[in-house]
Design a binder for these strands. Structure first.
Lengths: 103, 103
DNA sequence: TATATATAACTATATAATTAAATATTTGGT
DNA sequence: ACCAAATATTTAATTATATAGTTATATATA
C-alpha cells in the first residue's frame, strides 16, 4: 500500500495527471478526436463543426494546450492547433507500463 | 477532419471516455496509485491514509467502480476493492493504438 | 448492539457557458 | 504610409450547472 500517494501525486505522475484532468471532459475528448493524422485546424474550423460557442471552444483549447496535449501556432489572423503526439504517446505509455508493473 | 466526433463520442470510445472522466480527478488518481500490485483494500484502509472523510472516499470509490476501474467484493462487514487491471490495460492500449495510428 | 459502508440532503466550490469587450492582424481606401 | 474597417481569437464578467464535501441517516452484517 502506497500510503503517501493519498497525500500527493508523485512527481513522475505530474504529466499524466494533467493529461487525465484535461481529457476528463467529453467536449475536450471530442476536440482531440476531431483531428486527423498530422492535421492542423484553426479555431474557426473547430467551432464550425461543434455545438459550442467560439469562446467556449477557445477555453477548452486553452486547457488542452496548457496540458501539452495540443500545440499551437499563430499564422496571420488565425491560430492553428495540432495534436502533440510525442507527449500523448509517452504519457500513455508510461501509465500503461505502470499499470502492467504495479497492478 | 472527423466532423461528427464533435457531436458525440463514437461507441468504441465509450469505455476510454468513462475512464478518462473518472481519472480526471486528483483524489481518484491518488486512490488508484495507493494500490500495490494485486492488493485488495477495504474502504476503512483507504480512509485511514487519506485526508478525506469516509463518505467522500465512498463517493469516489463508487465513481471508480462505475467506470470499471475498480472491482469490489463484500466480505463480512467490509467491502474490498482492487484494480481492474485487464480493463485499464486494454483501454489504455486502445487509446495508445489510436494515437499512434491517427495523430 | 456495535461496526463497516453506502446513501440522502444539503452546502460549498469549481467548472462551464454565454455575452460583451479587448487585442491582434490583415485589408482597402486615401 | 496612414487610418479605419473587417476578421480571428482571447479575455473578462456574469450566470448557470455540475461536482465535491459534510453531516446525518439508513442498511447490512457480525
Amino acid at each position: 500500500m502506497n500510503k503517501n500517494y493519498m497525500r500527493a501525486i508523485p512527481k513522475q505522475w505530474a504529466t499524466a495527471s494533467k493529461v487525465f484532468v484535461a481529457l476528463g471532459d467529453k467536449h475536450r475528448q471530442r476536440i482531440l478526436l476531431t483531428f486527423d493524422r498530422g492535421e492542423r485546424l484553426n479555431v474557426g474550423q473547430i467551432v464550425e463543426v461543434s455545438t459550442l460557442s467560439r469562446s467556449a471552444i477557445s477555453h477548452h483549447l486553452k486547457i488542452l494546450h496548457d496540458a501539452d496535449i495540443l500545440l499551437s501556432e499563430k499564422i496571420g489572423k488565425e491560430v492553428y492547433f495540432w495534436v502533440n503526439r510525442p507527449v500523448l504517446d509517452e504519457t500513455l505509455q508510461n501509465v500503461l507500463d505502470y499499470i502492467r508493473k504495479n497492478t
